[in-house]
Computed example of a mutant assay.
Amino acid sequence: MDPSAGIVDSQSLRAAANIPRSTSGWDGGKKVAGRKRHLVVDCLGLVLAVMVTAASVQDRDAAVTLLERLRRLYFSVRLVWADDGYTGRLVDWAAEKLQLTLDIVKRSDDPGGDVAGHQSL
Rank of each mutant, 00 (worst) to 15 (best):
K30Q: 13
P3F: 09
E68T: 08
L73N: 14
K106E: 06
L70F: 07
H38P: 06
L48A: 02
K30A: 09
S12V: 02
H38A: 01
D92L: 03
A62P: 13
I104K: 02
G88R: 14
V52M: 14
N18K: 10
V115M: 13
V40E: 05
V50G: 02
L98Y: 01
S108G: 15
K97G: 00
S10L: 03
Q11C: 09
D109L: 11
A63G: 08
I19F: 07
T53M: 06
A95L: 06
L100R: 03
A94N: 02
E68F: 00
M51E: 13
V57M: 04
S22M: 12
A55Q: 10
I7H: 05
D2L: 15
G112I: 05
K106S: 11
E96N: 05
S56A: 15
A94L: 03
V47L: 14
M1E: 14
D92C: 00
S12K: 01
A94W: 01
T87L: 12
L79M: 05
I7T: 05
G6F: 03
A94S: 12
R21Q: 13
A95Y: 04
S4L: 06
D83M: 03
V8E: 01
L67S: 02
G28C: 08
R78D: 05
S10T: 10
S24D: 10
I104S: 02
P3G: 08
S56G: 11
K31R: 14
K106A: 11
G6A: 03
G25L: 02
P3N: 09
Q99F: 07
A62G: 15
V8M: 04
G25I: 04
T65D: 15
G113C: 10
R21V: 13
L67M: 08
R69A: 10
A15V: 04
L66T: 04
V64A: 09
G88M: 11
K97W: 06
V47G: 01
A82Y: 07
G88E: 12
S24G: 10
D110I: 06
D9E: 02
V8R: 01
I19T: 15
S12Y: 00
L70M: 08
G88L: 08
Y74W: 14
T65C: 10
V80E: 07
G25C: 02
R89I: 03
Q119M: 06
G34Y: 04
V40H: 04
S56H: 09
V57N: 02
K106L: 11
L48P: 01
D61E: 15
Q58G: 11
G28M: 01
D61F: 09
A63H: 11
I104V: 12
V64H: 14
T65W: 02
G112A: 14
T101K: 15
G85A: 05
R69L: 13
K97F: 00
D109A: 14
H118G: 07
L70C: 10
G45S: 04
I19H: 00
G85Y: 00
D114K: 11
R107C: 08
K31G: 00
C43V: 10
G117C: 08
